[in-house]
Design a protein around this nucleic acid. Structure first.
Lengths: 246, 246
DNA sequence: CGATCCGTTGAGGTGCGTCAACGGGAGTGG
DNA sequence: CCACTCCCGTTGACGCACCTCAACGGATCG
């Protein structure tokens, strides 16, 4: 997972971007840049660089000086932290519309890596921060996103600390379905772009346990594993119940 | 744990507050209200009500309409979420200077309860939000606090998902020491205001495992359990290592 | 066609949960 | 003052959910 060559990212961004890439951006309603005034949007366009990266590319690493913030416009990104001996916890997946860099001071608090082919808008941090001072609306939007992230983080703590493997897997499937619905995709069967190892590190399990739990759910008739990394939620109500331990 | 009588809270607040309680507030540097202009501070005073509550009092419950936000000026508060069968995850402890209500939309995303005798500043949510629009500085401060909370949440996910019981306990002790240091208290021995049950529900363990792990650390010579809920960190460097799995 | 990666399955071990008992401190009432 | 209860922290015995280690098949790729 080599780090991204930022010069190349910038070049590709210029190459793929048109004069006003944000004006026609189809995912704007989902993003930070939703509900900005035309004037504000133009100022944002001035500092943004779009780019497209392959899967398994490191976007930045924990502890690095945080010079750029990103908005995900396509694909999936994972955030993770490592222990010295290599144990990994994935703290979140980002999909279209999510903002990358909410939790940081001077340095990134986690590493970020693309799971699939991914499109990003890159904002130099200094410039974005001065825009924040000029446009309270933008700051308000970011604060609101941070609040939502915090609420999601609390949910994840409940999952990690108190749920069983089966409850974790069911919660995870429902989260994927909600994401798909938000993007306007069909949410059943649900597409699972990440590997078993990524799922395990997100849920605090091992790949073996993830695999076995999927098999159990399949045998019990709750789900059906389809090709193309898709999972059919056969008994949706039962999965909802199992996600909460009922 | 009966809910607080808000009328009584308000009355006590009026009773204990003086004309400009914030101007002389000793914990202001730690709080949201740090670095506000005198004019801004005066506007904040207009909407704030201070109160003091006993331990084990419910401040609000998950799912309730979020009508008030709080600032903790003394004592300790715990935030938690419950599963239908009663399993509990404490998602965080708040100490002096912490803001209560960062993660919410219309409703509270978790329940809040006092651990010790606690002093609170209460802000009606609507009024605080309109102040946010007027004073970007205030909004900036809240956003910064939310960012820090998010980074802390990521750390907690790593702890819950990937650390062993001993690593969890050592991380917890170091967190308490950092809090004490921030407050200007001596950080060794460290004061532990919460029960074993609260520690367990914060770390994703049971009270028995918490107790056993403390005993192990005591036997190994890393810590010493003192009376008055205090724990002496005998070998601080070793505890730091153990917290990270080294 | 070997090499590598990924997902699955099996066998066996263990860290932590469960259940139970006990002691000390605090509050309560006689 | 004691007797009683309740709550909390500790300790022991035991069980199990999940981890560890290992093997295997299918897919992808040079």
């Amino acid at each position: 997972m080599p780090p991204i060559d930022m010069a190349r990212v910038r070049d590709k961004g210029v190459a793929t971007g048109d004069a006003n890439p944000c004006g026609a951006c189809p995912v704007r309603p989902l993003s930070v840049c939703a509900a900005l005034e035309p004037e504000e949007l133009r100022r944002l366009v001035d500092i943004v660089q779009t780019s497209r990266i392959q899967s398994s590319q490191t976007i930045f690493s924990e502890g690095e000086l945080a010079e750029n913030l990103f908005n995900v416009t396509a694909g999936t990104v994972k955030l993770y932290k490592l222990l010295p001996d290599g144990r990994r916890q994935i703290t979140g997946f980002l999909v279209v519309g999510d903002f990358l860099g909410l939790a940081m001071n001077e340095s990134y608090a986690y590493s970020a890596e693309s799971v699939t082919v991914t499109s990003l808008c890159r904002f130099p941090r200094r410039k974005l921060e001065s825009l924040l001072d000029e446009f309270p609306r933008l700051q308000r939007r970011l604060f609101s996103m941070a609040s939502n992230e915090l609420a999601a983080a609390q949910d994840q703590m409940l999952l990690l600390g108190r749920k069983t493997a089966r409850e974790k897997i069911c919660s995870f499937l429902l989260m994927l379905a909600r994401w798909a619905a938000r993007r306007g995709h069909k949410d059943n069967p649900v597409h699972v772009p990440m590997s078993r190892a990524d799922i395990a590190d997100y849920l605090g399990l091992t790949t073996e346990t993830v695999s076995r739990t999927f098999t159990q759910l399949k045998i019990s008739g709750a789900i059906s594993l389809q090709d193309g990394n898709r999972i059919l939620l056969v008994d949706h109500a039962q999965i909802v119940d199992m996600a909460e331990g009922l």
